[in-house]
Amino acid sequence: AEDTGVRVELAEEDNGRKSTIALRLWVEDPKKLKGKPKDNGAIEFTFDLEKETPEDVAQEMVESGFFHESDVKIVGKSIRDRVALIQWRRSRIR
């Protein structure tokens, strides 16, 4: 996955069965972002693999003031990369 400067990880162990997972996102390299992120903390959130898209979450984070509008794509991509990896691991385990 491309190094976007935004790190996304599982916030808790993935049992491979629940459609909703917990993720944690934080900025590792602020220089990669166009806008100044609001916080330098880690943002934990739940994500429904079946019903939601990474872009939904990225837009909500912008609307909640965590990121500047100009960074919605890079935040969305960072989440998408991690979600794709989780889904790939699940398919491999199945």
Binding site: R7, W26, E28, D29, K38, D39, N40, G41, A42, I43, E44, F45, T46, D56, V57, E60, M61, E63, S64, G65, F66
Partner: peptide, 27 residues
């Protein structure tokens, strides 16, 4: 605003907590 919670109008809860020291990249 660390350890803060923000609930988006769509209902999603964002919980902000400090990034674990071990996860911060070396400058």
């Amino acid at each position: 605003s660390l350890n803060a919670q923000v609930v988006h109008s769509a209902g999603r809860r964002f919980i902000v907590s400090p990034v674990p020291e071990s996860r911060l990249r070396e400058p």
